[in-house]
Simulated assay, not measured.
Amino acid sequence: MTEILANLITPLTVETFVGEIWTQKAVYLQASHPQRFRELFAWEDLNYLLNFHQLGDPDLRFHQGGQSLADVPVRQWRDSRAETLRDRLQQGATLILNQVHQRHPALAQWTAALQRDLGHPVQVNLYLSPPHQQGFNCHYDTHEVFILQLDGEKEWLIFDPTLPYPTSETRQDSDLPPETPPYWQGLLKQGDALYIPRGHWHYAIAQGGHSLHLTVGVSSPTGLDWLEWAIAKLEKQPQWRQNLPLLVPTPNTLEQSLNHLGTALSQWLTSDQTLQEYRQHLQHQQPPLPLQLPQQLNPTLDPSEWSLDTHFQLSPLHRPQILGSEEKGWEINLANRHITLQGLSPAALACLFNPRGFTLSELAEIAPTLSLDDALKVITRLVEEGVLLIDPKFPH
């Protein structure tokens, strides 16, 4: 269930990390081998993005000496992209590429899997720092951070927080780092990882060569986020939209009304149903379902083009929530989509949503009572909705 997280925090166990480290202190995670993140992202992936994607502010930025450099003029960027990038890097600027997981399939799949493990939103930014340069002054983040060192070496210094569990709303321009020495200082080498809790001040300096690393940000919800979710739910209930009593003529009327609402709120917030709904809300925050062209361009798919060996694959970025029964029908919740399926046995449903995918022949073997026509109708609908993908590596 937590394979991606477990691999990320090795040699620690998930139980140790969650119970003793998470939100409490930074931890250095030494590489089991230098090529640990090689399949996740590499120099050639960065070159592809820079050469063939029209990137600009705010997704692509430069920092130097703790300051953000001015945006590159559009015409200069268009006419001399490579020269501009090289000039700024050679002058000591750090290149930042935000939301890189939205531009790289393997990284998108890894990020979605980590988000499923954690149940909290995840994003990934990339940093390329020249030797002996510090791109950012000492600062803290308002989200949890994992550093994945892809290449080169970078020294990190981490300090105690000055405000426990800060949010973007509590951050002040006047905030200053502590005057005490760093409680952790060390060198990240290729394949190493580092966890930094939100609020913990830090900065880093690249060493002898260029440093390339990914910053994985985890935007963990807080009690305040739970209350915001609850308010959106309560807006649908008339008693919470009703006027509060006037302060006259009876002063105690307002207090009585607030006490009544407070009791009702406590009972509703802590009910099993409400808690389960919020858990499901966190678990199913997922990216949009993917496009698959040209299949989804057709008014209707032509299942006659499929063979018994055509391989159908669930979107690798998603995992469905399945509720219901064969008698009442199945409710499929996936990426803020709600799909109802009728007349499917549990075995047929498990085959359709098997993360490893399936073929028509495998579906027929697992669910022999499902007719071919009914199977094709269900599969066609799921392909049109983007839930199932036709795997191009397998014969059609």
Rank of each mutant, 00 (worst) to 15 (best):
M1C: 12
E3S: 11
N7A: 01
T10S: 12
P11N: 00
F17P: 13
G19P: 01
V27T: 15
Y28D: 02
Q30I: 09
R38M: 00
W43S: 11
Y48R: 15
F52P: 00
L55P: 04
L55Y: 07
D57M: 11
P58K: 02
H63R: 06
G65C: 03
S68T: 05
P73N: 04
Q76I: 14
Q76D: 08
A93D: 04
Q99T: 07
Q99G: 02
H101A: 10
R103C: 06
R103W: 01
W110T: 14
T111Q: 15
A112V: 14
Q115Y: 02
D117M: 13
D117P: 11
L118E: 07
H120I: 03
Q123Y: 13
Q123C: 05
Q123H: 14
P130T: 06
P131M: 09
Q134A: 12
N137Y: 11
H139A: 04
D141T: 10
H143W: 00
H143F: 12
L148Q: 03
L150H: 09
L150A: 05
G152V: 10
G152L: 04
F159N: 04
D160I: 01
L163S: 11
P164D: 08
S168H: 05
Q172H: 07
Q172D: 08
D175H: 12
P178E: 07
P178C: 09
W184L: 04
Q185M: 05
Q190C: 09
A193T: 15
P197M: 08
R198C: 14
A204M: 04
A206T: 11
G208C: 00
S211R: 07
V218C: 10
T222R: 08
D225Q: 14
W226D: 00
L227N: 09
E228A: 13
W229N: 09
K236Y: 01
Q237A: 10
P238I: 08
Q239D: 02
P245G: 13
L247W: 07
N252D: 15
Q256W: 02
L258I: 15
N259R: 15
L261T: 07
T263I: 06
D272Q: 15
T274S: 14
L275A: 10
Q276D: 07
E277P: 05
H281E: 06
H281W: 15
L282T: 06
H284T: 15
Q285Y: 05
P287H: 12
Q296E: 03
N298K: 09
T300F: 12
L301P: 05
L301M: 05
D302G: 04
P303Q: 02
E305S: 10
S307W: 01
S307H: 06
F312H: 08
Q313C: 14
Q313R: 15
L317A: 10
R319E: 00
P320L: 08
P320M: 05
I322H: 01
G324D: 08
G329Q: 06
A335P: 05
R337G: 04
R337E: 13
I339N: 04
L341C: 06
A347C: 03
A348G: 13
L349Q: 03
L360Q: 11
L360K: 08
E362V: 11
E365F: 14
T369G: 00
L370Q: 03
L370D: 04
S371N: 05
L372W: 05
D373N: 11
L376T: 03
L376S: 06
K377D: 06
I379H: 01
T380W: 02
T380Q: 13
V387C: 02
I390R: 14
F394C: 12
P395G: 01
